[in-house]
Design a binder for these strands. Structure first.
Lengths: 199, 199
DNA sequence: AGCGACAACCTAAAGGCTATAGGCAAAAAC
DNA sequence: GTTTTTGCCTATAGCCTTTAGGTTGTCGCT
């Protein structure tokens, strides 16, 4: 009987494709086994569990995204970089909704640390080099940036914006304009914390 | 044999509690049946399917959230209203992570229309009455507002902000400051679309 | 070429989840 | 007090995960 030639990597890739087509939550060892015309038990020689397989999709997705981000950010700064960064996220989510969803799959600490997650963080921060933000303000801005991009992309993917005019494309570009404006004019705290600073 | 006294509503509530404790993705007819010390098949007299039960959690959560929002927004305007709105989301997500996750469960059109979703939309828009935004800019702003709040809250819930200083509380309040500033100074489009307007 | 040994894939089986069909008895209706 | 309703049950079947243990390609070694 001919062998299917399974591999950790091939399994992860097939699972990622399945995720994109059927949704991340429908990724199943059984489905992957069917795809390779192999019995389910065989999968366990290459992957520890269903959770493991999903984790591999996540790592794959984070990696691909980081690669795209790196390419898009090369040689760009300021709003250009901001827009490129955001566009990569949005396009990735549209092209690969399942993988994008996988991106939200919970990793344990060690796995997360070894993932492309830190590269993402670095690149987010790199974008802000084009703006005049220092110290903790940079961190706040990174977090806000992440929130806007992730929030918009996932709401859009859920169809939250598709039941009213105008099309979400316009809102997207206006949101990026707004974000750029904000980063160029980062406001001081409105409620200046408790007046007592650490002595 | 005494009866358990199952009800659509009691089931939904128990399921919501289960979601908060175990995570929305672990809500299962079996688990709910165990909770009521009843056989799984019995559940089907009250609920059409697992999907149906999850949908009911979603509707419950949307309703609760809308109620809280209504209370919080009463008598507030401007940044006050903005902060109250956002705070309700964040607190709800922290108190009820499972229900908050349910909020992202996909509803079919009819169900969504009959849900508290439209109330949410109304209230988001109401917040912007305190700012000087008109026409489509209002829509863009509503979408951005939703993106920021949802994005921040879900990233925070995933622990995305818990691996670096400072605490996310600070970033949250700075993000709201930023959002308020943005709504008070809503920028014009940076790339003024194609100069040709529809004649 | 032949022989091991490893790796790749298999069968079998158990346990959990969803779902449907049909039965019995408690509660409600009269 | 009988009838009807309906709440919950048993039984069954299908799909998914996971583990244990068997078989057979395939490669390296001699």
């Amino acid at each position: 009987m001919a062998r299917a030639g399974l591999t950790r990597a091939r399994l992860a890739l097939a699972a990622a494709e399945l995720a994109d087509q059927a949704g991340f939550e429908h990724v199943t060892l059984s489905a992957v086994a069917r795809h390779f015309d192999v019995k389910v038990a065989s999968i366990y020689s290459h992957v520890a569990s269903a959770h493991d397989l999903k984790t591999r999709i996540t790592l794959l997705a984070l990696d691909e995204l980081a690669d795209r981000l790196a390419v898009a950010l090369a040689g760009r700064a300021g709003k250009d970089a901001l827009a490129a960064f955001a566009e990569v996220f949005r396009n990735y989510a549209r092209e690969h909704p399942g993988r994008y969803a996988a991106t939200r799959y919970r990793l344990d600490g060690a796995t997360a640390a070894a993932s492309a997650g830190p590269r993402h963080a670095e690149m987010s921060r790199a974008i802000l080099r084009g703006y005049d933000l220092t110290g903790v303000d940079q961190t706040h801005a990174v977090r806000l940036l992440g929130s806007v991009v992730h929030g918009f992309v996932s709401l859009e993917l859920e169809g939250a914006f598709s039941h009213s005019a105008p099309g979400s494309d316009v809102s997207w570009s206006r949101s990026l304009d707004a974000l750029d404006f904000l980063l160029r004019n980062w406001p001081a705290p409105a409620t200046p914390a408790d007046p007592i600073e650490e002595p």
